[in-house]
Simulated assay, not measured.
Amino acid sequence: MTSLPTRTPPTHTPYDGSSKLFSIGLKPLAPTDWIEVDGHLLPYLAEKRRLYAEIPGRVFVEEDGTRDAQQEVLDLLGTHLLERFPDTYRRIDAGVEAVGAQSTTHAGLDGASLVAASLLVQEDLILMRRNDSGWRLVAGSLCFPSSWSLVEKFGRPLQDIHAPVPGFGPGTRPAELINRMFDGLQGQAVERYNWSIQSDNALYHPLSDLERIDRATKRPSRFPDGDIGAHAFIRVERQTLRKLPASGDILFTIRIHLDPLAVLARHPDRATLAVSFVAQLEALDLAQLDYKGLTSDRDRLIAVLNHMASDG
């Protein structure tokens, strides 16, 4: 795992109540804000290259007939990055590159434009395509999964992808709303946030559906020494959706931010953030806690946050 610098203060704090867990929460996104670039760019890209070299079949999938859409993603990203971040990206004979990044390729992945696109940005990139079964995951570069498996979700429609999420399975109102939102998405890009807690700073954080069921059944603490304050990391996902003008596919981007919980204690609004964080944790039911892996740790996490609020 590539070591990452500590971010102070956190870039995004959706646990402040602005992005409720287990809600859709899509908001319009200004085109200039589509992609986020910060001082973590090169370490993130180095970690992606490591994963492509070691476990390519777990972090990249594609169906036949998606290469044109992948190229469309690469072209759109290249244009956007050169315009929005001219000091970070430059044009080269092969297209666009991040200044200071390595330019290695990996056997079996050459020619996959979605891989090339993923090695420009910190975001993961997922292509969704509509057919009679709904919007299906037809290609994806997912180097930094937040407790899910790209291979398991590959080729499946949205309602099946979201089946393990409490309240979002096939036939539920949220599942129907998400499908309608995908159908209605046109030129306007949208964004949403999600967050979770993990016990290390790993960007690659997969979990299969079977592992999730096993974890929920046993409900083990992920902090056996009990020191959540010292070891917990807040994992924030910034997700965007935009419809590709040529292919009509939808590009789903996922940007991961990892912040040690201890960083929150140094935030100028730590008391307000801690109180909101506690309120969201207290509102989760058992199924939601199991899904987030927080069943055994919520009370201890709340105690740490309450202490943080009282010191604010």
Rank of each mutant, 00 (worst) to 15 (best):
L150V: 13
A265K: 03
P157D: 05
D214P: 01
L241F: 12
S19G: 00
C143Y: 07
A163L: 12
N201A: 15
L210G: 09
L21W: 00
I178T: 07
T240I: 01
I24W: 01
G140P: 02
L125P: 09
E54P: 01
P86G: 05
Q239V: 01
D214Q: 15
I178M: 11
A287V: 00
S18K: 02
P164L: 05
L286Q: 13
H205E: 07
A262K: 02
V99S: 10
T172R: 02
A98K: 09
H257S: 14
L185T: 05
R50W: 09
Y204K: 01
E54M: 03
D214F: 04
D160T: 11
E97S: 11
A246T: 15
A287E: 15
L77Y: 09
L177F: 07
G100R: 13
M1A: 15
G140F: 02
D183R: 09
W148E: 02
R235K: 13
E47Y: 08
A46G: 12
A116N: 06
G226E: 13
D110C: 14
P31T: 03
L125A: 12
T105G: 13
A53I: 07
F277D: 02
H80L: 15
G65W: 10
T13K: 03
P56F: 10
S18P: 04
R180L: 15
S199L: 01
Y52I: 09
Q188C: 07
L109W: 05
D87C: 05
I92N: 13
M1H: 14
S18F: 04
P28T: 07
L74V: 01
R255S: 05
L185P: 04
L142Q: 08
R219Y: 01
Q288W: 08
L177R: 12
R238T: 01
L114E: 03
R91G: 08
A189D: 10
P43H: 08
G155T: 12
F144G: 05
V263F: 03
I55S: 06
A98Q: 11
I35W: 06
H257P: 00
F22W: 03
D38T: 11
R238M: 03
G25A: 15
R130L: 10
V121Y: 03
K48G: 02
A287S: 14
E237Y: 06
L258R: 02
K292T: 02
Q239N: 08
A112G: 00
